[in-house]
Amino acid sequence: MSEFLLLFRGGEGDELRKSPEAWQKHMERWGTWMGELSEQGKMMGAQPLAASGQVVSGQNKIVTDGPFMEGKEMVGGYLMCKAANYDEAMEISKGCPILEFENGIVEVREIQKLEM
């Protein structure tokens, strides 16, 4: 069993948020998706992220304000889960409600064991 980080990119919900009903239905699908993962014991954690942020970079540790990318590429949240391999991780990712948006992306990355 390996561990994977799923990064949710894009998928602006601004239009959807205008209708509280549609928004709630959408969020319920996130709940169902994560509920099933939890039930299978594969869910390790997930959080949505705020749209604004800051970055610190370089040896001079320069701090600048975000957003630092186009909305469609911005990370809006993450989920960590267990899966046997990439095939399974991709199957899991296909159920993610971010894909209801045209520009929704799930980036799947395996957790790497660092050899010291």
């Binding site: 994560m34 509920g35 390790m44």
Partner: peptide, 17 residues
């Protein structure tokens, strides 16, 4: 239950759960 614990820990699902 572990299931509910995970769902309560995530902002995506805490209120629904």
């Amino acid at each position: 239950t572990e299931e509910n614990r995970q769902l309560l820990s995530s902002e995506y699902t805490v209120e629904l759960t």
